[in-house]
Nucleic acid binder design. Structure first.
Lengths: 215, 215
DNA sequence: AGGTAAATACGCAGAAATGCGTATTTGGTG
DNA sequence: CACCAAATACGCATTTCTGCGTATTTACCT
């Protein structure tokens, strides 16, 4: 049985790219496209659809609101977000709205194809990195209140790794052993972190990093 | 660079099956195996390990407790649960303990191999079905047993007051000034706190106090 | 090829924290 | 009143952390 797919994407170039990614699969049938959420909702009453690939940022009605309504009116339809945004806010909103999957647009053709099949099979495909953010959302209960501004402070991946070691109360020596670097390097990294976060001790650094969801 | 893998699995048949699933990859190096969590913890100080494939149900120390301790002592090590249980309780507990991935034992060899690589790349691989349960957990917040148990540790009101000062990253001097006591007294209080919480530094104390909702 | 950011590493000086004692004062309780 | 827990305070030795430099190597980008 062919998989009936709809795509909501306002950028025609991105839409074309998306269609191409699915073109290799003979059992995939692209039954509808729309340039915004409202248009997509309208087409759903005209076409049977299994899966929607949904952009988030669209005019008139964005992908998250559209997802919410799709799941309300057609709960059997699976929605996979396909977007460039990987911030907690959008991820959480999309999941809350009922999205089954969350892919970044940089995802490969095979990745998108597999995501569609996974979704049909009851899975919840996510780009690498998205899934781990989802786990972090679970670990650090979100305050449903307004979105606090999270800042990056220009921390590198390695520096965040150092912070994760720090948060367990490990000494520089122990961290150095864990990461196979010298204690002096650990110290250097941490000093850089302090400078970037504008703090001058572990506890403050961890507090600030945590408040900004860096760890 | 080879990927150093450890496996914790009490059933020798399942262990063998797991090893076989990884056998095809020339750059995978199985550096340690253990029949329970305690044994695994011991081996981690002897071998550099990138990823642990962890069974949940094991004697002596189960996989979730082991994961908790591994992430505590070696945060850089990624843990992938490999189990037959797919209930919310176990999934959530594993994630809370710090697991990066969650696979069912029925997972194919390719699936396990890909999961290991995904994890190294910062992803969070989950068997189809697990991921969607995770999303459901996020949508319907539940407080699992064991996450609301708070312990007092015999801390006095004053000691908790000290902890609240500590969590802001203040120095002993500054806290002393805030509370109108001598730095020596601050030190004494904090030493008493450490003894009661069985830790030996600020970060661990704050972490433990926070986990038990003392601050 | 040159420039840049990141990760690695070391040294020195000083500040802060930690471990382990001891001691006094205070407030409440039996 | 006698007792006890809690809060207060200090000292010494040691470990750990922090600030501020410098320097090399690697990877990536132009």
């Amino acid at each position: 049985m062919p998989v009936k797919i709809a795509i909501a994407e306002d950028n025609s170039f991105a839409l074309r790219a998306c269609i191409n990614k699915l073109a290799t699969e003979p059992d995939f049938k692209q039954v509808a496209t729309a340039f915004n959420g409202d248009e997509m909702l309208g087409k759903l009453s005209q076409h049977a659809v299994d899966v929607i690939l949904m952009d988030i940022m669209m005019p008139v009605m964005d992908g998250i609101e559209c997802t919410r309504r799709v799941k309300q009116q057609h709960p059997q339809i699976k929605v996979i977000m396909l977007t460039t945004f990987d911030d907690d806010e959008n991820i959480l909103n999309a999941i809350m709205a009922g999205a089954s999957g969350y892919l970044l647009k940089e995802e490969s053709a095979e990745g998108v194809v597999k995501a569609v099949r996974d979704t049909i099979d009851g899975g919840a495909p996510m780009s690498a990195g998205i899934a781990s953010k989802v786990l972090n959302l679970l670990r650090n209960p979100v305050i449903p209140k307004g979105h606090e501004t999270t800042e990056n402070f220009g921390l590198t991946a390695r520096e965040i790794e150092l912070l994760q070691q720090l948060k367990n109360g490990l000494s520089y020596e122990h961290i150095a052993a864990n990461l196979f670097i010298s204690p002096g390097t650990v110290r250097k990294h941490i000093n850089n972190i302090y400078t970037k976060l504008q703090v001058n001790n572990k506890v403050s650094a961890l507090s600030k990093a945590s408040a900004n969801r860096l760890i």
